[in-house]
Design a protein around this nucleic acid. Structure first.
Length: 195
DNA sequence: AGTGAGATGGCCT
DNA sequence: GGCCATCTCACTA
């Protein structure tokens, strides 16, 4: 399965975040290529979005990868111990990206009842796949890159759920925007409530 | 089921 | 110095 091309990412960021649901996140690790189905994302819309790291056009070394244009990894370090991965979207210099919040490992599509979830949150999935700041700025459409996305679709009956983004209480009115996308009822969606 | 706090470090003012 | 696009565990009830 070929990696998704640049054109997939150079579109309206809201659409990219939504369309990433059901696609396959691929990471090359020591053990080989690990694949997982994306089940939850959030869109961050650049200079006009109070919740975005690029709000107001802020352009610092940390955030620079968000301006690379669609199809790059933006990995940031948060709370002193977690990494989170975004896939940039839209045009170069737009400062927009889709945060990958949760994935379902394809080797283990249905979680055993007692299995501990390791990929149902942005910090957790990065730890599980060994994604760190070393991956920041990576072109995920480039042949041979360590991280990429392959095509995939929603299954029959699966629906997309829209809700407010998580963990952005300081973002004023942007807090209410429905920019979080998840596959309704999927057990790997982050948080305690799956419905 | 819901709430609260601690861990822990880089970034920005 | 204060703030974080988080996670886990302890505590209430």
């Amino acid at each position: 399965m070929p990696r998704l091309p640049r054109e997939f990412y150079v579109r309206k960021t809201e659409s990219v975040a939504r369309d990433l649901l059901g696609k396959t996140l691929c990471v090359r690790t020591r053990r080989g290529v690990e694949r997982a189905r994306i089940v939850e994302t959030e869109a961050y819309l650049g200079a006009g979005d109070r919740a975005a790291h690029t709000f107001g056009g802020r352009r610092t070394a940390r955030v620079e990868a968000m301006y690379l244009g669609g199809g790059h990894a933006y990995v940031y370090f948060i709370y002193g111990m977690h990494f989170c991965i975004n896939l940039t979207a839209g045009a170069k210099d737009s400062g927009e990206a889709a945060l990958v919040r949760a994935v379902a490992p394809l080797s283990d599509p249905v979680p055993p009842p007692r299995a501990k979830m390791r990929t149902n949150g942005p910090g957790k999935l990065c730890a599980f796949y060994g994604i760190t700041r070393a991956d920041n700025g990576l072109d995920v459409t480039a042949p041979g890159s360590r991280i990429w996305v392959e095509d995939g679709a929603l299954a029959r009956g699966e629906k997309i759920h829209r809700s407010p983004r998580i963990g952005i209480d300081g973002a004023g009115e942007a807090r209410e925007h429905l920019l979080r996308f998840s596959i309704e009822g999927n057990p790997y969606v982050s948080g305690r409530r799956k419905t």
